[in-house]
């Protein structure tokens, strides 16, 4: 690998790690809002989201430059593809952080509606998945990444249970509909965070093994040599 490319790839890696740290921090604070919502934090998250959008574009730009100038292959190609995709996933997680915080603030007008503990637990699990998928990227650990992918089904189950619970509550307390809709959206957004964590983990498997496992369970193609 040429010195120029080495430098560009190394900078990309650093930029992505900085983005990971910032987005993890954002999603932590957004989920904390479910327990203690406040508008100031929500506003800060909006500002930070703009910053993440800018970083995402910068990383994409830098990846395209590497592709155009050096035509990388093998691990270098997979690295660039993974960085570009992970950056996109993180950008969406940052969007979700803002949305979750907004939903939490939406609950301030309905103190009688409590955020279910199951949602807080689900959110912590989604954050854990995101953290472990990022760790897997840093450690180039596809085994850990695959474990994250397996967790997504459990989050989907929790999501279903919570949605059913909320729908029952809507029938029972139609006067709380506005607040319950905020909760409904928050549940879906937390579930999406877990989806993005899974996508990142899948990107790590591609980075390490060169194998695309996205949709593999549906297509039944995640076999050696596929």
């Amino acid at each position: 690998m040429s010195v120029h490319m080495q430098m560009d790839v190394s900078n990309l890696h650093k930029d992505l790690l900085a983005m990971c740290t910032q987005v993890e921090d954002m999603i932590h604070r957004a989920v904390d809002q479910l327990s203690e919502p406040n508008f100031e934090t929500s506003r800060q998250l909006v500002d930070e989201d703009n910053d993440i959008d800018r970083k995402d574009v910068e990383i994409e730009d830098a990846c395209l430059k590497v592709l155009a100038l050096y035509q990388p292959v093998a691990i270098d190609l997979r690295r660039i593809a993974a960085v570009m995709k992970i950056s996109g996933e993180l950008e969406r997680v940052a969007d979700l952080a803002v949305s979750i915080a907004e939903r939490a603030c939406g609950l301030l007008n309905s103190p009688q509606v409590q955020v279910p503990d199951e949602l807080k637990g689900m959110a912590q699990r989604a954050i854990g998945m995101l953290h472990r998928s990022i760790d897997a990227y840093v450690d180039l650990d596809s085994t850990a990444a695959r474990k994250v992918c397996l967790e997504d089904d459990e989050i989907d189950d929790l999501n279903r249970e919570l949605i059913e619970q909320l729908i029952r509550q809507m029938h029972k307390h139609p006067e709380q509909l506005d607040a319950l809709l905020h909760l409904f959206s928050a549940v879906r957004q937390v579930e999406r965070v877990a989806d993005h964590a899974t996508n990142i983990a899948e990107d790590v498997v591609y980075l390490v093994e060169g194998r695309i496992i996205r949709h593999a369970h549906k297509l039944n193609v995640d076999k050696p040599g596929s």
Partner: peptide, 17 residues
């Protein structure tokens, strides 16, 4: 071979290492 070579020597060569 150019996206996921099996041998390390191949990988090192095609990536210019």
């Amino acid at each position: 071979l150019f996206t996921r070579p099996k041998e390390k020597q191949t990988e090192d060569y095609i990536t210019g290492r």
